[in-house]
Design a protein around this nucleic acid. Sequence first.
DNA 1: TCATCATGCAACTATCGCAGTTACAAAGAA
DNA 2: TTCTTTGTAACTGCGATAGTTGCATGATGA
Lengths: 134, 134
Amino acid sequence: MKRNSRLSLALHTLSHMAGEPAQVRTSSDIAEHAGTNPVVVRRVLGRLRDAGLLSSEKGHAGGWRLARAPQDITLADVYLALNESLVASTEEPETAECSLEHALHRRVADVLEDVEKTLIHRLSETSISEIRGA
Amino acid sequence: MKRNSRLSLALHTLSHMAGEPAQVRTSSDIAEHAGTNPVVVRRVLGRLRDAGLLSSEKGHAGGWRLARAPQDITLADVYLALNESLVASTEEPETAECSLEHALHRRVADVLEDVEKTLIHRLSETSISEIRGA
DNA sequence: TCATCATGCAACTATCGCAGTTACAAAGAA
DNA sequence: TTCTTTGTAACTGCGATAGTTGCATGATGA
Ligand code: FES
Ligand code: FES
């Protein structure tokens, strides 16, 4: 695994689980399937659980399970749950005095925000259950 | 300077130069103005020169100058000249066997490509000369 | 009850991208 | 020829993140 793999891991796992929504899976199983580490899986899926997409349970027969019907989980839900952005942001200029820099930053930031919204909107058009049949 | 500052540096410098298009500036002057290093400036502006937005000359009275009228240089021109992307890309799954992973990657990649196009289109609506008056 | 299994989490390592820096070669003007 | 400026390679430092180890916590069931 390399860069930006959190979203890939999350989507892969959820799409896989969408095939058998009732099935409980351990982070070890998921990690082996995805070719990564159980701790990494728990880190990523933990965010999805916090967002209400998954539930997790400890102990015997514990593990991870979908918390919603797969057709009610869109790619945007997953993207937002991870709380990361695939669109870069520009940092505020620290020299807040120059109006040119301000105008520039504003302009670019506006465009990037619009683009982020476009991304989320496009992702919301597909649910994880649609991936299997796609 | 921190992250994703190449575009910021490029736009700042070009917008600044748009105020006096005929003026020649050295990378030292530009670096001092932008609060960074001359070598970094040359690295970034070198890309803009390769893309035909700037010209550079060595020796006495040498330096950097706009190669086009500022109203003919759009933010998209600058963005594309840098040959970097502000929209993340997902990497091809190495296990090319699973159709689910393929479908997933395809879907996400399609969305990201669309979003990148949207970004470029939005950036092409503004020229660097418009920033000053904005 | 208590051994076992799973998650939760903290801490550490390895790696990658990138800004910053140093050093020097190459080219052009005075 | 000498000074100035770009062009580039090589290195350092930093931040982000995947991977790893270790252990605490809690649930299950024998
Ligand atoms: S800080 Fe204002 S133009 Fe550079
Ligand atoms: S569903 Fe995981 S590799 Fe195909």
